[in-house]
């Protein structure tokens, strides 16, 4: 194919771009189908696949963009779009990672505080079930003196009781 600038994009290049974009689209759809990739993360990849596919098929549009941005060859326009896409994807993922980092931090802080409450409750329960000397005892003078097998033994100072 020859452009008005005399620049050729060979059928082989065109075929490669076509195959690459279709493979990318199939891969992304398959990953979403298998739930390996969430829909919210897939749209940028699908968009790229579609753009490359359209530009490989609709050569006039590629030539128009090439002229518009002042690129030398249509292939370099495709490359430039690829690189631009990678930059946008990286920024998108950096934003996602920042959000996730904040969320993980908040979860970890929540876990830390809840864990401390749980330990306090356990400590409290242990104190309640551990050997406690009741100096007052009951009305008969019997008091709790030891704990065996999670049970308490009552002992009376007055053996006659």
């Amino acid at each position: 194919m020859v452009t008005d600038q005399g620049i050729v994009m060979s059928p082989r290049q065109q075929a490669f771009a076509l195959v690459a974009s279709i493979t990318l689209l199939i891969l992304i759809i398959e990953l979403v189908r298998r739930r390996k990739l969430r829909e919210e993360y897939s749209w940028l990849w699908i968009l790229t696949g579609i753009v490359i596919l359209v530009l490989s098929v609709w050569y006039g549009a590629l030539l128009f963009i090439t002229r518009l941005i002042g690129a030398v060859t249509p292939v370099s326009t495709l490359f430039m779009f690829g690189i631009l896409f990678l930059v946008v994807t990286n920024i998108y993922y950096s934003i996602k990672i920042s959000t996730l980092t904040t969320q993980v931090k908040n979860l970890a802080q929540r876990l830390t505080i809840l864990d401390s409450y749980m330990r306090e409750i356990r400590k409290h329960q242990d104190t309640e079930s551990s050997p406690v000397e009741d100096p007052g005892g009951d009305e008969r003078g019997c008091r709790l003196v030891s704990s065996q097998d999670n049970g308490h033994t009552w002992k009376c100072e007055d053996q006659n009781l």
């Binding site: 931090k105 970890a108 802080q109 929540r110 876990l111 830390t112 505080i113 864990d115 401390s116 330990r119 306090e120």
Partner: peptide, 25 residues
Amino acid sequence: ARILDHPYNMGYGAALQTGYKFALE
């Protein structure tokens, strides 16, 4: 002291903030 145990090292600011959240609650 009462202990608040972070599950992993989160940084000085995050440690302070855990203290703020605990105080708030």
